[in-house]
Every structure is written in C-alpha cells, then in structure tokens.
C-alpha cells in the first residue's frame, strides 16, 4: 500500500471540516442579518381594513405613522361583498399609538412618490387595537375624482363667461350702445374743437382792438398830465408838511388832555363814595336846618324835638 506523504494533505479532513463550518456560519449570519433587516424576527401583529377599490394598494407597500415606517401590507383579497380586504402587519412596539379611533388612508409621498398606507395616531384615552381587529379606513380622493370635482366647479364659471361674451357681442346690449354713444361724442368733440378755435381767433382779434384803444387812451392821459401845472402842484405839496406838523401837535395836545383827564378821573373815583356820603350828610343837615327854621318861633313853629330816644325804639305793635 502506497502512503502519500505530501505535507499539503496532512490534516486534510480537519481543514475541510473547518472550511465548511466557517461557510455555514457565514451563511447563517447573512440570513440572520437579512432577517433582522426585513423584520423577520420582529414581533408584529396584524390589522384589517376594507376598501371599495384596491387601486393603489399592493402587497409589501409600507405602512407609516407620522412618516415613520411601522409595518407593511401583507395581503389583499376580495371579500364576499366584492370589496378589497387588506391586511397590514405592524410592529408590536408601535401598538400603543394605534387606538380604536385611529384611521388609515392611502396617500402619496410627494407629488410623484410611491403610495403608502398612513396610520393616524389615536387618542390615548381610547383602547389599543388588538391583533386581528379592524381599523377604520378613510377614503382619499384620487386624481380623477379631484379632476371631476374641479370640472364641476369650473363648469358654472365657464357658463357665465360664455354668457358675458354673448352679452358683449349682442348689438342691442347697453355696452354696445355706450360704445356707439362714445363714438358720436368723439365726433362731436371734433366739431366743438373747431368752434373753440374760431372763438379763440375772435378773442384774439378783440384783444388786439382793446390794446390799440388802451394805447390811445394812455397817450391822451399822458398829454393831459403833461398839460398840468406842475408848479402849482408843487406849491400845494409844500404846504402839506406844516399842516401835518400842526395836526401832530393837535393830536399830542389831545393825548395829553386825555391822559390828564384819565389821571384826574383815577384820583376822583376813590373820592366819590366819600363825596356822596358827605353830600348825603349835607342834604340831611340842610333838611334839618329847614325843619328847625320851620319850628322856630319866628316862623310860627314850636320847640325842637327831643333827642335820640324818640327814634330808637319801636311802638307796641312794631
């Protein structure tokens, strides 16, 4: 029996076994990594909802909550009512956000982006949706529906625009008549302008005539002024300054008299009450003197009346 003693084949079995082990380990790791990345090992739970049309939905399309991927569409199937039953798979850790009042809807990510299923966050006071339960679907309008809606809204506007155009084009409409009147007015303005030009020309002629007459008048006036006796006028003017001086003197005298009168009045006014009092007293004394004379024996009167007691007190019925 021939024995091969090549050193490269020494421990060959061990080497092959080690190689296979490393390869298997690598494969397992890759599978594991892919599984982790794909969420194969993530704990999920399923939810269901029904839509009338399955357009836009596809298996594996992402399910997002607040823009963050939380699961995917796992199944689409027609049910007994010919509606599309859709099953989604959601990570279990996001279960707390999905409550009984949460909704799902089909939306597009951006204007030309992929369609996704978006889940709206529910109220925290509502119970969580459990595995296998249904979630409400909110229908979103597709482009065709939106186009129809816009078309419905634009239709009456277009109708009105058509009516306006028809009105404008109608020869019997007010607008047409107004435009016609404007044309007539413009033609009349031309005529008016012609008449205004004639009037201006006439006015210019009249002004020229007036100017000629004014010149003649001014010449006549100049001749008259030249014929005036300047010497006499100068004599009269020479007499004016002394006259004005006299007037000034008279005014000064009047002012002085006025000031003096004012001063005298100021001095006299405070004395008036006293003067009146003294006058009153004088009149009273005169009256008393007359009474005394009347009462004197010479004029047939009696003795003078008694002093002040008689006038002080009232009588019994005072």
């Amino acid at each position: 029996m021939i024995k091969v003693e090549d050193p490269r084949f020494r421990n060959l079995e061990r080497k092959i076994g080690l190689f296979i082990l490393v390869a298997l380990t690598g494969i397992i790791l890759v599978v594991a990594l892919v599984g982790v990345q794909r969420g194969v090992f993530t704990k999920t739970y399923t939810l269901h909802f029904t839509v009338d049309r399955g357009t836009g939905f596809s298996k594996g399309m992402p399910v997002k909550l607040s823009g963050f991927r939380i699961g995917r569409v796992t199944d689409l199937a027609l049910n007994e009512q010919a509606m599309v039953a859709i099953t989604i798979e959601v990570d279990h850790k996001y279960k707390k956000w999905i409550r009984s009042d949460s909704t799902v809807k089909l939306v597009k990510e951006g204007l030309v982006g992929d369609s996704i299923v978006e889940v709206a966050v529910g109220s925290l006071n509502k119970p969580e949706i459990r595995d296998g339960e249904s979630i409400s679907y909110v229908k979103t309008k597709g482009l065709d529906e939106m186009a129809d809606e816009i078309a419905e809204k634009v239709k009456p506007v277009l109708h009105e625009v058509r009516e306006i155009i028809a009105y404008v084009n109608d020869p019997n409409s007010d607008l047409k008549k107004t435009i016609h009147n404007l044309e007539i007015l413009t033609r009349n303005l031309e005529q008016t302008r012609g008449r205004a030009d004639l009037l201006l020309a006439s006015t210019t002629r009249n002004l020229e005539t007036i100017s000629q007459r004014s010149t003649s008048l001014l010449e006549t006036t100049t001749r008259k002024i030249d014929s005036l006796d300047v010497a006499k006028l100068n004599t009269s003017l020479e007499k004016l300054p002394p006259l004005l001086e006299k007037t000034d003197t008279a005014m000064a005298t009047v002012n002085a008299i006025s000031a003096e009168t004012k001063k005298l009045a100021e001095q006299a006014f405070p004395q008036i009450p006293g003067l009146l009092s003294r006058t009153d007293e004088l009149l009273f004394n005169t009256d008393r003197l007359m009474n005394n004379l009347n009462n004197s024996w010479l004029l047939g009167g009696g003795a003078a009346s008694s002093p002040h007691r008689s006038i002080s007190a009232g009588d019994s019925h005072d």
Binding site: R288, N292, S296, S306, I311
Partner: peptide, 20 residues
C-alpha cells in the same frame, strides 16, 4: 328860637346818624 335843648356837636351828630 334855637329850641329848648342845647346839645354838643357830637351829640347832634349822633342824633343825625340815628335819624339818617
């Protein structure tokens, strides 16, 4: 005729004031 009562000027003035 001067009357029965003769009084001073002040007395007369007093009576006058009262009468007035």
């Amino acid at each position: 005729g001067g009357g029965a009562v003769t009084r001073s000027v002040s007395q007369q003035r007093l009576t006058d004031l009262q009468q007035r």
